[in-house]
């Protein structure tokens, strides 16, 4: 997203979780697209600007919400993403974010604690040591970016569904919300959270997850576009409220399933 990259000021991760309520996206804000859906371009069809830009954006956002529902219906919880041999791994695997690689957040492993909250029984934060001790799985799958490009990567970690079980999460809840060290966030639907290939990831290509790919942990879900796969995860919340996300609030489709 070279054209829309915008560095954001550093945020204290601990404050982020405490202030989570304040960070909830304003519902009215979701109606507007920063950068605009540029209805001006419709003039190339009609020769005159007959459509009011703001209301057209509202209609487009509503169709996008309709598409969320259509995609949720199309989503088969038992359908697995194709997996690849090690020889298919894209090397080097591309770095991609809304900030340059040098600005990727540096998380101190010793101090790190994963905050967990919402509709769960065990709200004690998780140290890396405890997270690393969880049963581990490996996947070699295709990461598909909303920009169109794709790359095959290798990720190791614990199934998110397994982790949610250990939290005593209410899996009848609708969403799982991820909060990230750099201020990024995303919300996913529970069926995707429980998909067998949705993984809390601690390693890339059998090495400790490097900073550029989301140290100390990310959530890998091959059934969604890349931007729905949060890096530098510092908080996991189970909720019935759609808490939006960094790109979703700017106009990208919420479900973004593959």
């Amino acid at each position: 997203m070279a054209r829309i990259r915008k560095p954001i000021p550093g945020v204290d991760p601990k404050l982020l979780i405490k202030d989570a309520a304040r960070l909830l996206p304003d519902p009215t804000r979701r109606l507007f697209l920063r950068g605009g859906a540029s209805l001006g371009a419709l003039t190339f069809l009609t020769g005159c600007d007959i459509v009011d830009g703001a209301s057209a954006e509202k209609v487009l956002r509503r169709i996008s919400e309709f598409n969320d529902g259509a995609q949720a219906m199309l989503f088969n919880p038992n359908k697995l993403a194709p997996t690849y041999p090690e020889s298919a791994i894209t090397r080097p695997f591309p770095f991609n974010a809304y900030y340059p690689e040098d600005d990727a957040p540096e998380v101190d492993a010793a101090d790190f604690k994963l905050e967990v909250g919402g509709l769960i029984d065990n709200k004690e934060p998780w140290t890396l040591e405890r997270l690393y001790a969880l049963p581990r799985e490996s996947q070699i799958t295709r990461h598909i970016c909303v920009e169109g490009w794709s790359a095959v990567g290798s990720w190791q970690g614990v199934r998110l569904s397994e982790f949610l079980t250990r939290l005593g999460a209410d899996t009848r809840a609708k969403y799982v919300w991820f909060q990230c060290a750099e201020g990024y966030s995303t919300t996913i639907d529970m069926p995707t959270a429980l998909h067998p290939q949705t993984q809390l990831t601690f390693r890339f290509d059998n090495e400790i997850l490097p900073r550029k790919y989301g140290f100390p942990m990310k959530c890998r879900m091959p059934t969604k576009l890349g931007f729905k796969n949060p890096k530098h995860v510092i908080g996991v919340h189970v909720t019935n409220k759609d808490l939006g996300g960094y790109w979703e609030d700017k106009g990208y489709n919420w479900f973004s399933g593959l």
Binding site: G35, S38, L60, S64, V146, Y252, N253
Partner: peptide, 20 residues
Amino acid sequence: SITLGGWLAGALLWHFAAMW
């Protein structure tokens, strides 16, 4: 000047609306 949507997110909204 000949594309629609202004930026990627806007274009995707148009594309996935007109597809129906």
